[in-house]
Nucleic acid binder design. Structure first.
Lengths: 335, 335
DNA sequence: CCCATAATTCAAAACGTTTCGGATAATCGG
DNA sequence: CCGATTATCCGAAACGTTTTGAATTATGGG
């Protein structure tokens, strides 16, 4: 490994001067700089980021903690986040260190340990649910951090989510306008923050519209296609009066549609279905799914941007609700 | 930041002893260790990984270079890789540093710089094409590295791919057995290694079966749904005699099917289509796509495993071809 | 009771950088 | 020509660890 020392030796200058020359300080003669740069090039010198990070105060590194990353996922949400985080990080010259945490096995490291070990400037967290130990730890974080899809009430932690509440309300309104009155709801993971918010949007709007919201009408599909399918199969047989279903995720909507098809219930003629997320699949199901589009890339980008602001002590709002879009495809019909 | 020094001070032992106690060396009294651990806990001490990495020879870190990560991707291949790489890394106690490179803008860093800066033990590269500057650089790498979907001929660089050649041949055979004789081929990016391999599998098998392979019958969809759609629209009108299409990716198959539908050509009745990859969408298109399944998770896992072996100077084959599976769904019919 | 061995502990160097405070030489105003 | 700037340069400390080699103490055999 060729170090700054080698360059100093070969060029005849001191370590200090070499460092300053290479880092563009202006108290070094241009000619000297040229010479040093030449030597650096000849020797194929690359500054050791580790040594640098050790001595510099900030590490200029974002941490990204992704919970529940696993194989065979049918959406690419994490990929979108990643893409966004990197785009922003590249823009501001930060690097990224990722930690994955599996909710099943208890992780060996706490998020705090992760952050401290690596001297992280701040961290972004996605995919966490309120029942994980991390959640509590995060609540009183001393380290700048922003949560995706989860709100917290600490000054050091920001959050960005889609405006789930209003999105949910809009879906109910949309269905109502199409003439539906018996609207069931398929909720996601009980411990996911978004589930609760979407649920209350549904309930509130239903009530406002004077529609009954019986507990029978809300199922729990755990954000899983398979579970949604199971639940729906049972439910649909018992409740032929239900003409519309709002699912808290596209995947569950897909499961639901499969159940309906198997029971000979035609979508959308006999049953309208609305999903949430607009994952790639949504466009290709039959019928193509009407759903609420979340822009996951933007979510990741805004999160990183917010983290950057928090790190730099900028005074900005710590809660950001992103807009959504109701994408009309063909899974809903008038009644 | 609480350091090892603080612990030394508070516990009354030397820095050396603290370090050795915390790292489980056996030349420290168990009682001492207990005490030191207690102090460490009280002070919420977390060893600084940066300092550690600086002094240790190996960094115990894999680099992962992902080319062409971008928003709005309709597959989750990178996510699968990531998931796999992390699973393996967690198993062997490595960390991962990711660099993204955009083939459009010339990247500020060479892969070598990236590796040296961070003292990486080795790197994994995915998504690279032969026309990128990185490709040449990689060819004579001094640093252990393994390429996904690209083969190299350097002892330090391994590669893992699906057995694209045979997969391609099998598809042709499959179509042949279904009675198809005029089989067209939609190729991917010209500069992607896999494209060439799949292409030759197609050509070789066609010839073996005594089928003509005219240049007219091979299109280039650049792995893009849109381009494949455009190309197909033109082609299908001119060549009604073609009864089957083999596409080098599912996405292109989707584009192709769309074109066919618009031209009133029924899939699979009038045109059979086979894709490649088996991305999540493939299962939901209408008709559901018959395709070659690649296990991207396994690819990532094997790649990391191989990298680990290379790093540890184990003598293992540097080229790994993964098996595939022809998934029969409904986009192919007998003729 | 003494020497050899084992069990503990520690001081100091090393990893590759940045940076503080000063040193030296050159330039300038008067 | 002198004191004061200014332009360049540099030595040494610092970042938080690990590790080497040795010192100290305890133990045991004879």
């Amino acid at each position: 490994m060729v170090t700054i020392k080698d360059i100093a030796k070969k060029s005849g200058y001191s370590i200090t001067t070499v460092s300053r020359a290479l880092n563009g300080f202006d108290d070094v003669n241009e000619e000297t700089r040229k010479k040093i740069q030449k030597v650096a090039e000849e020797l194929q010198y690359y500054p050791n980021a580790i040594a640098r990070r050790l001595v510099k105060k900030g590490s200029n590194t974002f941490g990204y903690i992704v919970c529940g990353l696993k194989r065979g996922e049918k959406h690419s949400i994490v990929q979108e986040f990643l893409s966004a985080i990197y785009d922003f990080a590249n823009k501001v010259g930060y690097e990224i260190l990722i930690m994955t945490v599996d909710s099943k096995k208890k992780s060996p490291k706490s998020y705090l340990q992760f952050a401290k070990e690596h001297n992280l400037s701040g961290i972004i967290v996605s995919g966490i649910t309120t029942d994980e130990p991390y959640y509590r730890e995060l609540q009183n974080s001393e380290i700048p951090c922003v949560l995706i899809d989860l709100v917290a009430d600490n000054i050091n932690v920001g959050s960005v989510t889609t405006d789930n509440y209003n999105a949910s309300r809009d879906v109910v309104t949309y269905l109502y306008d199409k003439g539906h009155r018996n609207i069931a709801y398929m909720n996601g993971k009980a411990n996911a923050s978004v589930s609760m918010v979407r649920y209350s949007g549904y309930v509130d709007r239903m009530r406002e519209l004077g529609l009954k919201v019986s507990m029978d009408y809300v199922l729990n599909g755990d954000f899983s296609e398979e579970i949604a399918y199971q639940e729906a199969r049972e439910f649909l047989q018992k409740h032929p009066e239900v003409t519309a279903f709002f699912c808290a995720s596209d995947l569950m909507a897909v499961g639901l549609i499969k159940a309906a098809r198997e029971l000979g219930i035609k979508v959308p003629e006999q049953l309208s279905v609305v999903g949430f997320d607009d994952i790639p699949i949504a466009e290709y199901t039959s019928p193509p799914l009407t759903t609420v589009r979340q822009d996951f890339y933007q979510m990741g980008y805004e999160a990183t941007q917010m983290l950057y602001s928090i790190i730099n002590k900028q005074d900005i709002p710590h809660i950001k609700k992103l807009s959504y879009e109701l994408v009309e495809r063909s899974s809903v019909s008038m009644v």
